[in-house]
Design a binder for these strands. Structure first.
Lengths: 204, 204
DNA sequence: CAAGTTACTTACTAGTAGGTAAGTATACCA
DNA sequence: TGGTATACTTACCTACTAGTAAGTAACTTG
């Protein structure tokens, strides 16, 4: 299939790198880092594997780029939520919604997937994964602390512990939802998390 | 390395199959099903890959055997807990301890790992994974229902939902503990789960 | 309009994946 | 004692893995 015949399919200047990351990201989130190959990505984009190596010399490079972009996008979304100035419970809900959106696309969190494959991944990727969770839990800790202070949230233990519990529960229920129970499983688990951090009503 | 020289290393009648499963299980729980090969297992046992194929013709067969044995062991442990006749909170604690033991060995739950790789696994394995979680959540549901009835446990929602929340939280915190926060992360998450299902004290 | 630079291609490599066929040492049984 | 079953081995095979070297068409700049 000659792509070089007259002019390149996409203006060529535009981001082939981004398209590669798009496809690789989807494959990584559905099949895992060890579950897809350069050949898979190349075939889907109609280019050769050598073309891929031009953009990402090694698979470790691709992996790091994947996490970096994912972390950046995630961080931007968190900043947007924070900047909205909404109440803490509403911000927490929006945080959960990010995860729900990923799951709805049949994926799991990129870094949740990579966490499973952690021991098989190159060092650069391992560091990047830890940074992702760091980012998440720092943001959540701040939110929980602020919510507790203004009374819109209530929970036992430190904000750090709370943040850890939230990410664990969300990552875990994403993981299981794909194999067992579907998206509604995630929803009930997420609702429970939200409820756990809501101020206790007088209780009938 | 001649193993056939005089007599076989292990009486030969004894379970080579079991030894294969032992090694494969450890590799699967640390590196994932796509993260190890027949060559890895064979090298560790000092036999050839062809020897492996004698016991488990295909990797899918090995995978199914892995899950079957794991489920059986797990099921037996749950039965033992149930048979102890201990109070519901104590039984729940022992359930959590099973997970803690797995993590302490540097592993994550076999089926948690396989849940991540779910879409890449053969159909037989997928079914077996669902059965594992079914087993877990059925047992937990029964326990939660009994505990609520006798007042030793308290929680919102159905026992099924509670069971789902517990497995999600435990699987998730196992996953993250290996990459971020270590075993203590799991412990704080597990303690929080236990506390969530404890009857509420009068609260100072 | 020539000389780069960019973004690929073709054509290959070495290593590893899962899997198979045929042979062999040992144990078990009639 | 001879035959059969068990538990392997040696020696392959095909497909795929990440990765590389060298070539090339099209844009970009001096």
């Amino acid at each position: 299939m000659p792509r070089h015949s007259s002019k390149r399919a996409t203006p060529d200047s535009h981001g082939t790198s981004d398209q590669i990351l798009d496809v690789a990201e989807r494959l990584a989130q559905t099949r895992g880092f060890n579950g897809f190959s350069y050949a898979d990505v190349a075939a889907e984009l109609g280019i050769t594997t050598a073309g891929l190596h031009y953009h990402f010399p090694t698979k470790a490079d691709l992996g790091r780029a994947l996490i970096d972009r994912y972390s950046k996008t995630f961080g931007d979304a968190l900043q947007a939520i924070e900047a909205s100035g909404a109440a803490a419970p509403a911000q927490l809900q929006r945080y959960v919604d990010i995860y729900a959106g990923v799951l709805k696309a049949g994926r799991i969190c990129l870094c949740g997937m990579f966490a499973a494959e952690y021991t098989t991944l190159p060092d650069g990727m391992q560091k990047a994964i830890r940074s992702f969770f760091d980012l998440n839990e720092k943001w959540l800790s701040r939110l929980l602390a602020a919510g507790r202070k203004d009374g819109s949230l209530a929970f036992e233990g430190s904000p750090q512990e709370g943040a850890g519990a939230i990410t664990s529960a969300l990552e875990g229920s994403m993981l299981l939802a794909r194999t067992y129970g579907g998206a509604e499983r995630f929803k009930t688990a997420a609702d429970r998390v939200l409820r756990d951090f809501a101020p206790k009503k007088p209780k009938k």
